[in-house]
Computed example of a mutant assay.
Amino acid sequence: METYMSICDEIKKRFIRLSRGQRKVAQFVIDNQNIIATHTASDVGKLIGVSESTVIRFCYAMELSGFSELQERIKRDLMGDEERSQSDHPLITKKQEHLLSDVMNRDITSILNTIQLVNEKDFEKSVKWVHEAGFLYVLGFRQSSATANFLTCTLGNYRKHVKQIQHDVENIVQQIGSMDEQSLLFVVALDAVLEDVLTIAKLAKNKNVKIVAITNSSLSPIRDYADIIFTVGAQKQSSAETIIAAHSFTHALVEGMVSQNRKQYTAYKKANAQIESNFLFLEKSKII
């Protein structure tokens, strides 16, 4: 019996063969199936920032007769998802020996999708901003805090003036107060962006701070405040699963910064490591 493949699975299978404009449409379809099912091709094109003809050409590239057939496929898949919503998690019902490869292949797909979605010019500009910024701030609460921690620690290995904004009023006020036009704020928004994150981003924007956002949805409200926004992850992934792609992407950003002046950053990392080593030696001496 032939296994049914959803339209989003078909898109993922053909993703690498699509043009850059069609890939934008593809990712939007994967992330926003309900919008595709209820809006016209023209409306979808405006939301994505491409022409209606690009949306139609994407449908043809997927061997569909047009946008109407895409909507029908999406509606059929959404109905199927509802019917399966009460069933066990797919990983639980699979044989245990397949779990490892299934999970890690999903992570690989998430990273590969992110590579295709990243705008190279925006990436290069962000790397330049990280290198030139006097102060770096990292914001990420709740499920986004893991990536925010990772980015803060990785940046802190190579340079000074890296601060992670903590979720308490006093810390937030202090950090925003020290921001200026020489500052760069990273906003990690891998879950539903709540008012506290948007408020901080708005206040930073009012101080002419450059803002780079990392999110798992192209429609995230953080886009209203970010100078550059990067979308990471893959279809229907939870925030926890998206973290893998986000970590990989932020690692690439840091490596890009280091490449701007490898000698300077490597020297700082060595000096920082030596200080930590001396500190640990003193701590062990006290115990003895």
Rank of each mutant, 00 (worst) to 15 (best):
S53A: 12
Q264R: 09
D31K: 05
D102Y: 13
H131D: 07
I200T: 08
D31Y: 04
N149G: 09
V197M: 07
V188N: 00
R106T: 10
V209A: 01
N171E: 10
Y4F: 08
L155T: 00
R76P: 03
N261E: 11
Q182H: 15
A273N: 14
N206R: 11
Q166L: 14
P90K: 06
T250G: 03
S277F: 13
D77P: 05
D102M: 14
T38Q: 05
I243A: 07
L280W: 06
P90D: 04
H247W: 12
N216D: 05
S183K: 01
C59L: 03
T38W: 01
S6T: 13
K202Y: 09
K207C: 03
A234S: 14
I11P: 00
N272G: 03
E283P: 06
M104I: 15
R57Q: 08
I287T: 12
T250S: 04
D43E: 13
L219A: 08
I176A: 08
V25Y: 00
T215L: 08
T109A: 07
Q164S: 12
V130H: 14
L280K: 07
L47K: 01
K263A: 13
N105S: 13
Y137K: 07
W129L: 14
F141P: 04
T40I: 04
L194A: 12
K263Q: 14
